Simulated scan of single mutants.
Amino acid sequence: MTAQETPQTLTDHEGSLLSLVHRLQPITAYKVAKFYQESPVASVNKSMGQVYPMINRFSKEGLIEGRPVEDDARGTEVWRTTDKGEVALKAWLREFKPAQLIPHDTLGTKVLSFGLLTHQERIDWVLEAKAELEKKQAELEDYNEKSDQPFQAYAHDNATGILRARMDWLDRVLFDLVKSSAGS
C-alpha cells in the first residue's frame, strides 16, 4: 500500500474480527469463532458461519495471510494480519461513528412498549431484567478471571460500567413504578 492509498474501511464487525486476529495471531479461524462463542459480550460474530466467510474475504482482500498448519490433514491455516490489514485496523480504531457512541439498547426499546403490560407485569419485568443482568455480571467476572488479553482490564471496566449503569437505570424505573402504585 502506498502512502497515498486510502486504507480499507471496516465495519465494526469486520474491525472487531480483524482486531481479534491481530491480537491473537497466529490464530486459526476455528479459534477465532471459539473466542467469540465463549465471550460474554453480545456479538454478531458468534457463529462459525459468519467467521469463516469473513476470514476468507479478508484473505482475498490482503488484510490477513495464512499459512498451513504442518502435518494437518484438514488443511487448517493460521492467520496473521498483513501490513495492509494493520493500516485498515488502525483507521478503524481511530474512527468514531455515532452508533458506537450510543449503541442500540434493546432493553430501552422494550420499556417504550410498557403500555402492553399491566402495572405488576412492568414491575416483574424490571425485576427479571435485573436478575438477568446480575447473571451477566457473574459471567463477565468469570470470563475476566480467565482472560489474559492485553488491555483486558479496560474492556472489563467498560463492560462492568455499562452493566452498573443499566442496573442503576432499572432501579430508578422500579422505584418510579413502585412509587406510582403507592399513590394509586
Rank of each mutant, 00 (worst) to 15 (best):
L93S: 12
E139K: 13
P7S: 06
E145R: 15
E121P: 00
P103G: 06
A155L: 11
N144E: 13
Y143E: 10
K60Q: 07
F175M: 08
R164H: 12
Q152M: 13
K46R: 15
W125G: 00
V44L: 13
L127Q: 12
G49K: 11
F58Q: 00
I64E: 04
Q152S: 09
A33H: 07
S147E: 05
H119K: 11
T9H: 14
D176Y: 05
A42G: 14
A165Q: 04
R23E: 10
L89A: 08
A165N: 11
S113I: 05
D71E: 06
T106C: 09
S47R: 08
W169V: 01
E128L: 09
F114V: 07
S39C: 12
R23W: 03
G62V: 02
S59L: 10
P150G: 02
W125C: 00
L116H: 11
D12N: 08
T81Y: 04
E145V: 03
F96V: 14
Q8K: 10
I64C: 02
S19P: 03
A29I: 03
E38L: 07
G85V: 02
T9S: 13
G49N: 12
V173C: 00
G85S: 07
H22Q: 13
S43P: 02
L17H: 01
H22K: 08
V32F: 02
W79Y: 15
D148F: 06
D176G: 06
E134Q: 05
R172F: 09
V87E: 05
T9M: 14
I102R: 10
E134A: 14
T6D: 09
T109V: 15
A88Y: 01
G75L: 07
A3Y: 07
D105C: 12
D12H: 01
M48W: 13
D157T: 05
G15C: 00
L133D: 01
G15S: 00
E86G: 06
T76M: 08
A129K: 13
V41N: 11
S180I: 03
R122S: 03
D124I: 03
L63Q: 00
E65K: 15
K136H: 06
F151W: 08
I123M: 02
E5K: 12
D124N: 11
V51S: 04
L63W: 04
K34N: 05
V78C: 05
T160H: 03
D72G: 08
S181G: 04
S43W: 08
L24E: 03
P26Y: 05
E132S: 07
D142T: 14
E132Q: 11
K110V: 15
Q37C: 05
G75Y: 04
K146F: 01
A153W: 06
H13L: 13
E77R: 15
S39M: 09
E70A: 15
L101D: 08
D176L: 07
E14Q: 13
Y30Q: 12
